[in-house]
Design a protein around this nucleic acid. Structure first.
Lengths: 190, 190
DNA sequence: GTCTATAAAATGATAGAC
DNA sequence: GTCTATCATTTTATAGAC
């Protein structure tokens, strides 16, 4: 499964032959030994996908929660970096979706359910709520769902830009990026 | 070439047979008529990629420029929507990169040069500059490159989330998204 | 659980008639 | 510029020995 994941991320499902998987897994290429473990190429792909989905679900626990007190902006920055780390951790799942959502349309809904509905968007919403709950702040005068969308988009965009282009947007490192985003968010209730 | 683009975006290069391309182009499948137009499958892929790269380059002209005056936030919102439209227009190029940058590593630098170095990042930088030059504003007290990175990330992230997940983050429509981002940017010099 | 051997189909590509 | 026909290779998958 590790060999399959690596090859599919590099060449795609259609560009990966069972022979390649056997070779990468240390089996004799073309021997058909693969078929003692999985009944078809599709089956191993689905197994890999399920494994990565499970990993992603298990990974999202223990995020910091609660009102952002004291040095609000620094705390915010820390949480945003945490979310970037999460995205990095579930990289395989995101890349599997990016590569094969055309051939396996069912991936879309499954990843969305695991990531968006209960993942970053959730965290970003908490974040926005926590921020608004900070002592001394007035209630929101802007659109909280839209702010959540901006935060989620910025985080995923930053991650994907690094993945696809091999470097972060404008060459800005994660810490600088998170600090700038936190500053924008903190200033919005001034 | 149209048939090839569509098939490659859906199934990937390795998952698209020359036979499929022939069928989609209205030729007799398996006839080899494809080879009267291109010498190999790789060649048609490269032709498609170059065509989309060219289209993307030609498309980015006529963006609004200059100091954001008057209703600064509304003007900003308009420009951000313009950038989202641009991303939608060059969708094929972005998706080709997302799908095949593993198999054709040379795509990365070429798309980056066309999009990031002279594209959105450039526009975002102008945007930040124009915003700071607005009459009555004080000079920037934050990190302009990092703010640019946030804007680029937010725009690309919003676009890619819609592509990969089939819906915008938090269900927020483009207008709401752009308005929220503009509000965050406009508030940062208060 | 791996190997050799092999079958059946799909795939990339060419030759030559129309 | 398309078709029929064809070929060599690659690919998916199975059978059976060890």
């Amino acid at each position: 499964m590790d060999a399959t994941l690596e090859l599919v991320l590099e060449r795609g499902f259609g560009g990966t032959a069972v022979t390649d998987i056997e070779a990468a897994a240390g089996l004799s290429p073309g021997s058909g030994s693969f078929y003692r473990h999985f009944r078809s190429k599709r089956e191993v792909f689905e197994a890999v996908f399920e494994r990565e989905l499970d990993r992603a679900r298990r990974h999202r626990t223990g995020f910091e929660r609660g009102p952002v007190g004291g040095a609000a902006e620094a705390a915010l920055t820390r949480r945003l970096l945490e979310q970037l780390d999460y995205l990095a951790a579930i990289r395989p799942l995101i890349m599997l979706l990016a590569r094969e959502h055309g051939r396996f349309p069912e991936l879309t809904a499954r990843v969305r359910e695991a990531l968006l509905d209960g993942g970053i968007a959730d965290e970003a919403a908490h974040l926005a709520r926590d921020l608004d709950g900070a002592p001394g702040d007035e209630p929101l005068r802007d659109d909280p769902h839209a702010v959540t969308a901006v935060v989620v988009s910025a985080l995923t965009g930053y991650h994907l830009s690094r993945e696809f282009f091999g470097r972060p947007p404008a060459g800005v490192a994660p810490e600088r990026f998170a600090a700038a985003l936190a500053a924008l968010l903190a200033a919005r209730n001034d």
